[in-house]
Every structure is written in structure tokens, then in C-alpha cells.
């Protein structure tokens, strides 16, 4: 891929747009179609495109594998701990209504945090899987 200028330039042009779109899907998922699962997959697709065009080593420099592992577990922990907070406020597990001053504000905050956790885990796991497969073929 090193000597293919068209692919490199098109990829450089597309990757920021894909990442922007992933962020839009992540944080606009309450109002339009989207959410953590979709955003995570789109985000990882951007980085996979980067790895395909510029090489695995360059991609691992941007997101080192140990950070990915941290991110994957942090997503699950974030989700689970957002569920635990209502327990201390006298509500059921994962009942976000008590997180804010009104029920709707609490639900909004809860859904945002939970979707963020989902997005983090999905992005990280998809990239971990891709890097594991691609790294296996490295000489």
C-alpha cells in the first residue's frame, strides 16, 4: 500500500469524516437512529481502514494494545457502575430515574453514560480482534 497515493489520500480524507460520524451516532443516538453499538463499530472501522492503508505498526502507535485492553474493560465497568449508583440512592439496579433532579433528566444521564460504556467496549473489542488477527500474519 505504500506506493498507492490515491488510496492514501482518499483514506486520509475519509478517516476524520468517519470518526466524526461515529461521534455523531454515539451522542445523537437518543434522537435519531444510533447508539453505542453502532458508534463503536463505525469508530473501529475508521481505525481498521487506517491500519489497512498505513500498516499495522502505524495503527498500533495511535492506539497501543494495552490502552485498548484498558478501554474494553473500562466500558463494562462504567456500565455496571452506573447501575450500582441508584442502589445507594434507594432505587433498583440500573434504575436511572434517581440520577437527576427529575425522572427524565436522570434517565437522560443514565442512558448517555451507559451508551458511552457500550461504545467504548465495542470499539476496543473490535480493534483487539482485528489487531490479534492481523498481528498473527506479521513475519
Amino acid at each position: 500500500m505504500k506506493r498507492n497515493p490515491i488510496l492514501r489520500i482518499v483514506a486520509k480524507f475519509l478517516i476524520p469524516l468517519i470518526i466524526l460520524f461515529a461521534l455523531y451516532v454515539q451522542f445523537h443516538g437518543d434522537f435519531g437512529p444510533g447508539g453505542g453499538f453502532q458508534a463503536g463499530v463505525i469508530f473501529s472501522a475508521a481505525l481498521i481502514l487506517y491500519a489497512l492503508v498505513f500498516g499495522l505498526d502505524a495503527a498500533e502507535k495511535i492506539i497501543p494494545p494495552h490502552i485498548l485492553r484498558l478501554l474494553a474493560s473500562a466500558g463494562v465497568v462504567l456500565y455496571a457502575s452506573v447501575g450500582v449508583i441508584p442502589l445507594f440512592l434507594g432505587a433498583n439496579y440500573l434504575d436511572y430515574s434517581v440520577l437527576g433532579s427529575t425522572q427524565i433528566k436522570g434517565q437522560h444521564l443514565g442512558i448517555l453514560l451507559v451508551e458511552l460504556g457500550v461504545g467504548m467496549t465495542v470499539t476496543a473489542v473490535m480493534l483487539i480482534i482485528f489487531f490479534a488477527f492481523a498481528g498473527r500474519g506479521r513475519p
Binding site: 447508539g35 453499538f37 463503536g40 463499530v41 465495542v122 473489542v125 473490535m126 480482534i129
Partner: peptide, 10 residues
Amino acid sequence: ILTAIVVGVA
């Protein structure tokens, strides 16, 4: 199905 697709690819 939304969650099933992502679990499916994993």
C-alpha cells in the same frame, strides 16, 4: 437483533 448482530460478529 441490534445486540445480536454485534454479539454475532464477536
